[in-house]
Amino acid sequence: MTDDRKGGGVSTRAEADLDALFAQARTEAHGEQMALPEALSARILADADSVLAEQAAQTQVRRARQAPVRSGFWRQLLTSIGGTPALAGLAVATVAGIWVGIVPPAGLQAGLQTVMGTTGTDDLFDIYFVDSSDVFEFAQSEG
């Protein structure tokens, strides 16, 4: 760059003028005169409120998504027996058991007669459910 000034710098006088201008500009920039106009402050703070509201809403959504699944007694029990499929199997077995208890199939009765040596339904129910006879008598009947 061509410059007739020594070292390419501005002359002392011009430099002093410029420095004085900078000093004045600096004073004004950092003084009360550069305080934000009220309307601008209001706009800026309205933006801040909107951002806070936005972020609060996002946080709520995130928390809802990340909320841990409640792990109560019944859920733990279900998990321990193998989950929902196991529960379905258990339900079927329970219904089948109740049905067999109420209306025992003929084959089952015959088999029981053979094994247990009894023919009466009452005896069968005695065997199935509550043994109301004396333990000693039962032992005798068995021989």
């Binding site: 920039a29 950092h30 934000l36 402050s41 800026i44 703070l45 801040a48 409120d49």
Partner: peptide, 11 residues
Amino acid sequence: ARVLTTRLGPR
């Protein structure tokens, strides 16, 4: 936000 606006806004 108010404090930051007052402090940094003029700059």
